[in-house]
């Protein structure tokens, strides 16, 4: 490994949290290999890119033309592949989410490069890049080696902790890829943000409800607890299938895979397909009236009781700390 490239995502005056995690992971690899680390960002402000200094990034490319104002998998991946080719990067890190997955996949096909998705650990051993990734819905992990000159990994958000390692300066270098509007094969024509709602994928705390919540009219309990903790609202499939909550909230095998610092499961039994989406959370708190519910087996903390009593008490108790 000589040159590492990290995909950065500006968000207003900062970068997305996962970008700092990627920078930290790259820095740790560079410490073992003395590789250099650069970023690549599409259309970020100087202020946003400068925040990367805090995590030790000293150099980034910036592709900023109106052409890139809106995302396209074909267009963005073509620009990134050109950068990798012309600057001879040999390890590229992407975030493991909708965009990152498709960019990494396309770039690997374009450059004939080895790619492993959704990694939860990276290491260098005897000069080889060794990664770990969950498979079979997290029921097992594989360790894998990437072959060839160019290697690509996408990293699961919230798993690599971003640690501070400030540097004085970051050099921002413009890159002008040889692409045009004709390379935009897909057009994003509309974006519907979950207004004011935090996505379970981005939240540090997720509070989820299951069938135990009895009906959508009681979901305010889940929402209040989530709001108090500054977290996002999630749901089990039973709740989504019943039409009580939108699919965007579903956690699990056919929903989203989350790994927040705290996951609170309220009235969720803990079916294997639900665990698939949340078992890599750092801490798990379960509330269930059935002491034998499987969710307790994976929980750090558990309260056996009726959630209609427990959640209000929990809220009251947490408020004491928040005050």
């Amino acid at each position: 490994m000589k040159k590492i490239l990290v995909y950065l995502e500006p968000l207003e005056n900062k970068l997305k949290r996962v970008s700092y995690e990627l920078i930290t992971a790259a820095r740790q690899i560079s410490e073992k290999t003395s590789a250099t680390v650069s970023g690549i960002a599409f259309n970020g402000t100087k202020e946003a890119l400068e925040t990367a200094k805090e995590f030790g990034l000293q150099h980034t490319y910036l592709i900023d033309a109106p052409l890139f104002a809106s995302y396209s998998a074909s267009l963005f991946s073509k620009a990134i592949a050109e950068l990798i080719r012309s600057k001879e990067f040999d390890l590229i890190l992407f975030p493991a989410h909708t965009y990152g997955f498709e960019l990494a996949g396309r770039v690997s096909a374009n450059l004939d490069a080895a790619y492993v998705s959704d990694c939860i650990a990276l290491d260098i051993s005897n000069g080889d890049l060794i990664v770990k990734k969950p498979v079979y819905a997290g029921k097992s992990h594989i360790t894998a080696k990437l072959n060839g000159n160019i290697k690509i990994c996408s990293l699961r958000p919230n798993v690599f902790t971003a640690t501070s390692s400030p540097v004085a300066e970051i050099q921002i270098e413009k890159f002008e890829p040889n692409v045009s509007e004709a390379d935009r094969k897909e057009c994003v024509v509309n974006v519907m943000k979950n207004e004011g709602k935090l996505d379970v994928l981005e939240a540090d705390i997720v509070v989820s409800g299951g069938r135990g919540i009895k009906g959508p009219e009681y979901y305010h309990l889940i929402e209040s607890l989530a709001a108090l903790l500054g977290g996002a609202v999630g749901s089990s499939r039973a709740v989504v299938d019943a039409g009580w909550r939108p699919h965007s909230e579903q956690v699990g095998q056919t929903g989203k895979t989350v790994s927040p610092t705290l996951y609170v499961a309220c009235g969720i039994s803990g079916a294997i397909q639900h665990l698939a989406g949340m078992s890599s959370s750092k801490y798990i708190l379960a509330i269930n009236k059935d002491k034998d519910a499987p969710i307790f087996k994976v929980a750090d903390y558990g309260i056996v009781g009726d959630l209609f009593n427990v959640i209000p008490k929990l809220i009251e108790e947490i408020k004491k700390y928040k005050e």
């Binding site: 790619y115 097992s140 080696k145 108790e317």
Partner: peptide, 30 residues
């Protein structure tokens, strides 16, 4: 391009502190 070196069942040591629903126990969890 990718070689599997090994597979393992992840062992996550969970604290597994399970309590009842009395005020005291809930306060302890918080």
């Amino acid at each position: 391009k990718v070689e599997i070196l090994g597979m393992e069942i992840p062992l996550r040591a969970r604290k597994n502190k399970i309590v009842g629903d009395s005020d005291q126990e809930i306060a302890e969890i918080v």
